[in-house]
Design a protein around this nucleic acid. Structure first.
Lengths: 126, 126
DNA sequence: CGGGATCCGGCTTGATACTG
DNA sequence: CAGTATCAAGCCGGATCCCG
């Protein structure tokens, strides 16, 4: 009853905000924004920082975030080419809230792990 | 240089915190937590609130969140059966940070849409 | 009502190779 | 270095049937 007064309601299937939220919170989007929050990074630096991401997925993720205006792409026409990615002001605000969530989850993993143990032993060990 | 002192680093591929973060921020996980933040809900109520989710995905999402200790499942052995889902204290804290992000994104969708427009017209309309 | 089990098509993902 | 192109595999998600 409190989100009906919003122009963009993420709970509605058709709302574009859901798409953006998925870019932001998606598997690689969240980690990419988190990595860039520490400062500007080049493509392969990002790739190393975000452990496990493939070239294609990183490229795709960056395009989506750039399109949404969260990441700025700075290409220098040198040889070898050098491309830096950094957060836009909007992206920084998003990353801040995202990192609040990430750090909280990281800090409470012990509780999560305990809960998992209880869950798994309660109903058939797996 | 600031997350190396954490026991659980989500940027590392092997870290269990990444899995939990994906449950939380995943397509349906985020919306489910968001919906439950308003209060306890039954299965089909949730299904209606989270527009577009299938029975299977909702069930699967709820299991993952329950296992991580973020959602509590209260089943009453009546007939017809009644099952209520609600956030645990930990889940409430997670949902709070998540909603901060969600609401921020919703509130800035105009900027996002403008950025998209600029991006699309700049490099070949698609 | 509240799910579990199964089948299956298709989009997403991830190597690999290639280009500028 | 910074990506794009291609292709196979696999997981996502819907539909369906079933049970308590």
């Amino acid at each position: 009853m409190d989100s009906n007064d919003l122009a963009y309601d993420v709970f509605s299937k058709a709302c574009p905000s859901r798409g953006t939220l998925e870019h932001v919170t998606g598997r690689w989007g969240a980690l990419t924004l988190g990595a860039l929050h520490e400062g500007s990074l080049r493509f392969n630096e990002l790739r190393r920082r975000v452990d496990g991401v493939s070239e294609k997925m990183l490229s795709q993720t960056l395009h989506a975030l750039e399109r949404d205006g969260l990441v700025h792409r700075e290409a220098q026409p040198t040889n070898p080419p050098r491309v830096d990615y950094e957060l836009t002001p909007l992206g920084r605000e998003v990353a801040q809230r995202l990192l609040s969530l990430i750090h909280f989850v990281e800090g409470r993993m012990d509780d999560v792990l305990v809960a998992r143990g209880r869950y798994d032993t309660t109903r058939g060990t797996r």
